[in-house]
């Protein structure tokens, strides 16, 4: 590779890295491309229509600080909301910021849920941030993030 090209690429990567410091290009090169691959930035834009989401303490995201096994990482998202016809959580999106396809699940709720909560288990290839993006019925978006360290190994 030409030295200049290399720096040009590095520059391009650096601008991405400014938004999502979790991305490391060594990892990107190793990974085979999947049909659903989508970066965190692109997914966030698609979900919020480019508006972005505001970090909020109304969103409680529960993930382990240290996952004992990357193949099964519990995630629970709870949102403070009356869940009435005029004021409810329309959707909870769970994103694994560093997975090739950052989207894990989009959950579309209705007032009939009674409470805005969703829990599942996800696969994390590596240590990374997990983010919940919440769409409210008034058209605004909230979010919460937490880092999960993934350990591997064990015996048997």
């Amino acid at each position: 590779m030409q030295r200049r090209d290399f720096f040009k690429q590095l520059g391009a990567v650096a601008t991405i890295a400014a938004i999502s410091p979790a991305i490391s290009f060594a990892d990107e090169a190793k990974k085979p491309k999947g049909p659903n691959d989508l970066s965190f930035k692109a997914a966030l834009d698609a979900i919020t229509g480019g508006k972005g989401a505001v970090e909020s303490s109304k969103v409680s995201l529960k993930v382990p600080e240290i996952a004992e096994n990357g193949a099964v990482v519990p995630v629970t998202v709870e949102v403070e909301s009356p869940m009435t016809d005029s004021d409810y959580v329309k959707a909870i999106h769970i994103l694994a910021t560093k997975n090739a396809n950052t989207r894990c699940i989009d959950v579309h709720l209705t007032p009939a849920n009674g409470k805005a909560m969703f829990a599942t288990r996800i696969k994390l290839g590596d240590t990374q941030d997990v983010t919940a993006i919440v769409a409210l019925s008034d058209g605004t978006f909230l979010s919460a993030s937490q880092n999960v360290k993934v350990t591997i190994g064990g015996c048997g």
Binding site: K62, V63, P64, E65, I66, E68, P74, T76, R121, T151, G153, C155
Partner: peptide
């Protein structure tokens, strides 16, 4: 020789909150 053994446990020590989350599963 089989696996690598270390006693540097605090590096991997799970918090009580984590343990509770796994128990809830």
């Amino acid at each position: 020789l089989v696996c690598s053994l270390s006693y540097a446990s605090e590096q991997f020590a799970m918090s009580d909150a984590d343990r509770e989350m796994y128990a809830e599963m």
